[in-house]
Every structure is written in structure tokens, then in C-alpha cells.
């Protein structure tokens, strides 16, 4: 019994310490933003490895998700003779939920894990300490550019995911199943609101980008500097990111779409 309590107490303490370190790390990262903006080259390099290299997987997944939505939506809606609302269904589910969430999950798997492994390995091979020895702040030089790049890339990737998905749904719905093209687009435009749907979707993706990049960078920076430690940190990044994305998505949805 005592052991159980002791274990619970220890877990809580460790959890809170980690949260505290994470917050301190985040504040340090944010305080470095000004110095990164003075050296945009660092940011461009990271935009390349985080954004551009995630581009292809996002586009392809978006296309297939949109196509599947088109197919499944058509089968169900045609039972009610409401095939014309296929556009609304595909676009609303992509813009509100699937776009931000799935692209954030893919982002965590593709870019987040790479960030953790990269930084964890830098720590294991003492590159970070080396920088400190040369009076270069590793937070400003390494962490902040990656953080900013993740924050900027995520909304762009989510928007691309939704766009390609809607076009994929268009391809399957209109090209393959013969839904009326005018109805597909006009119903979509009539039902989707710029403020309520598009902006809220973008806000979601910014929040997810923030959280995912933060987790990935912190896990890498906080990893035990051994090969096993880095591998565990990478796993934790993907798992924790997925949990945070899905949990936050529920909270954000409840806040945003509550009063409809």
C-alpha cells in the first residue's frame, strides 16, 4: 500500500518536473525568436527539412483520404437520395477535423520523430555542449529555428491536405460516381463558413503545430544521451504528440463548434 502511494507520488513528481522543464525550455525557445529572424538562413534550412520534405506524404495522404471520403460518403448519402451534399460532407469533415488532425499526426510521425532523433543524437555526441563551449547558445542556434519552422509549416501543410482532399473527393465523386459538379461545389460554398470553418481549422492546425514541435524538440533536448535513450525519446515524441493532438482536438472542437 505504502509502496503504491510512493510510486504514485514519484510519478506525479517526475511528471511535474518534466512539465516545468518543458515550460522553461519553451520560454527559452520563444525568447530566441528575435535572433532567428535576424538570420533567416537558419529558418529557411529548417523549413526545407520540416516543411518541404513532409510535403509529399501530406499531399498523397490528403488525396487518398479525400477519395475515400468521397466513396464512403456517396454510398451512405445515395441511400437518402442526397448525393448532392457529398461536397459539403467531404469539405466540412476535411476542413474542420481531418485536415488539421491527420496532417498533424503525419507531421508528428514524419517531422517530429526526425527532430527528436536529430537533437537527441546531437546531445549524445555532445555537439550541444560543444556549442556552449564556443559561447554559441544551442537553443537559439538549433532549437528556435526548428520550432519556428514547425509552427509555420503546420498550417500550410494542413491547408494543402484539405485542398488536395477536396479535389480528391471531387475526382471520385464527380469523375467516378457521377455526382453533379455544380451541386458539389455550390452546396459546399453555401454550407461552409469562412469564419466558422476555415479560420477555425487554421487555428487548430497552428495549435497542433505548436504542440507537436514543442514536444518533439523537448523530448530530443531532454533525451538520455545514449542510443537507447534517443530511441525511447523518439517513441515518446510520436506517442505523446498523437495523444495531445487528439485530446486537444476534442477540446478545440467543443469550444469552436459548440453553439451551432
Amino acid at each position: 500500500m505504502i509502496e503504491l502511494l510512493q510510486y504514485l507520488g514519484k510519478t506525479t513528481r517526475v511528471g511535474f518536473t518534466k512539465l516545468g522543464r518543458g515550460t522553461y525550455f519553451l520560454l527559452q525557445t520563444i525568447s530566441g525568436i528575435a535572433s532567428v529572424l535576424l538570420r533567416p538562413r537558419l529558418l529557411i534550412n529548417q523549413m526545407y527539412s520540416i516543411g518541404v520534405l513532409s510535403f509529399l506524404i501530406i499531399i498523397i495522404s490528403g488525396l487518398f483520404v479525400g477519395m475515400v471520403l468521397g466513396l464512403q460518403g456517396y454510398y451512405i448519402l445515395s441511400d437518402f437520395g442526397a448525393e448532392e451534399t457529398l461536397g459539403v460532407m467531404v469539405a466540412a469533415s476535411l476542413v474542420r477535423e481531418l485536415g488539421p488532425v491527420v496532417s498533424a499526426l503525419l507531421f508528428a510521425g514524419r517531422a517530429g520523430s526526425a527532430l527528436t532523433a536529430e537533437i537527441g543524437l546531437m546531445k549524445a555526441t555532445e555537439q550541444l555542449s560543444g556549442m556552449e563551449m564556443m559561447a554559441v547558445d544551442p537553443i537559439k542556434r538549433i532549437i528556435t529555428p526548428r520550432f519556428l519552422a514547425g509552427l509555420l509549416s503546420m498550417p500550410l501543410l494542413a491547408a494543402l491536405f484539405s485542398t488536395v482532399g477536396i479535389l480528391g473527393g471531387d475526382m471520385v465523386g464527380i469523375g467516378l460516381l457521377g455526382v453533379d459538379e455544380g451541386a458539389y461545389w455550390s452546396q459546399m460554398q453555401a454550407k461552409l463558413d469562412f469564419q466558422d470553418d476555415i479560420i477555425n481549422g487554421v487555428i487548430k492546425s497552428i495549435v497542433f503545430g505548436f504542440v507537436t514541435t514543442w514536444i518533439a524538440l523537448f523530448e530530443g533536448y531532454d533525451a538520455i544521451p545514449t542510443s537507447e535513450g534517443v530511441s525511447r525519446a523518439t517513441t515518446r515524441t510520436v506517442v505523446n504528440s498523437a495523444f495531445s493532438i487528439l485530446g486537444l482536438d476534442f477540446i478545440l472542437t467543443a469550444l469552436m463548434f459548440g453553439d451551432n
Binding site: 498550417p155 501543410l157 453555401a190
Partner: peptide, 27 residues
């Protein structure tokens, strides 16, 4: 690298515009 990043950012912005103008009722 610059070109690719530029292409990525541009296509992302085009995506956002597409969503705003073509998909929603912004007009």
C-alpha cells in the same frame, strides 16, 4: 533549397486561398 521552400510556402498559401474562396462563402 530556397526555391523549394518558396514553392512549398507558395503552394500552402494557394491552398489557403483556395479554401477561402472556392470552398467557403468568403465571396
Amino acid at each position: 533549397q530556397d526555391t523549394l521552400v518558396g514553392l512549398f510556402v507558395a503552394s500552402g498559401i494557394v491552398g489557403l486561398f483556395f479554401l477561402a474562396l472556392q470552398v467557403s462563402n468568403l465571396s
